[in-house]
Amino acid sequence: MTTVPLIETRQLTMNFGGVQAVQNVDFSVAEGELRCLIGPNGAGKSTFFKMLTGQLVPTAGEVRFRGRPISGRQPHEIARLGIGIKTQVPSVFDGLTAHENLWLAASRGKRGRAIDRAVDEAIERLMLRPIADRLVGQLAHGQRQWVELGLVLLTEPVVILLDEPAAGMTDDETTRTAELIHDINRTHALIVVEHDMAFIRKIARAITVFDRGKILVEGPAHRVLSDRRVRDVYLGKRAA
């Protein structure tokens, strides 16, 4: 392969004391891709995800963004390179209004009226108009998720990492989130960590399955989801 991957890890390893949460993972995502990371609890997805975003510094190996090593950089530097992060529990500014939340994100790279324009667009796109002036801390869980998504989009990232975007959502909200993810994928690469298999079926194109800190299977959704080993891991038949 001659093209440089958007995000690439080489021999990425993370140890917590004696536990190897992630072991020698080689992984890569191309520009514009939509990739899902799945795996049972404790498979190392979250640790892997945190290393991609700079929240954890790997014990060994490295993370590259468009060929540049980024592991060990400050979180705000990683964000400025174009990596957007949506956390599992919505990470927003609870004491500020939805509008103020979005304004902050837009103000990082923009000036003056461009900020207001971008915020307005995001409010339309995410259908936040009726709640724009309410404190985010008072909004429903699903609405907070969308405010957070707005925050992430307004920083104009190249790739967005989503940690369990459908967690705790109602069915309607999940469907809408799946649509939103496809919509966002037209302009951004996405890496989605997810637990909910129904949601995965709605959005997935390519899937990487983690198990016990390693990549178990990787490939197109239909093949991975019908793979025997994946079913075994999820159903706990491994021991048999």
């Binding site: 705000h76 964000a79 957007g84 990470s91 927003v92 103020e100 990082r108 920083t155």
Partner: peptide, 24 residues
Amino acid sequence: TRFGRVLVAIRENERRVEFIGFDA
């Protein structure tokens, strides 16, 4: 100012401020 608003945002959620690219 933007500085002041970012400051208040840090009080609210320092991690998110860094995720959107400001040096808290």
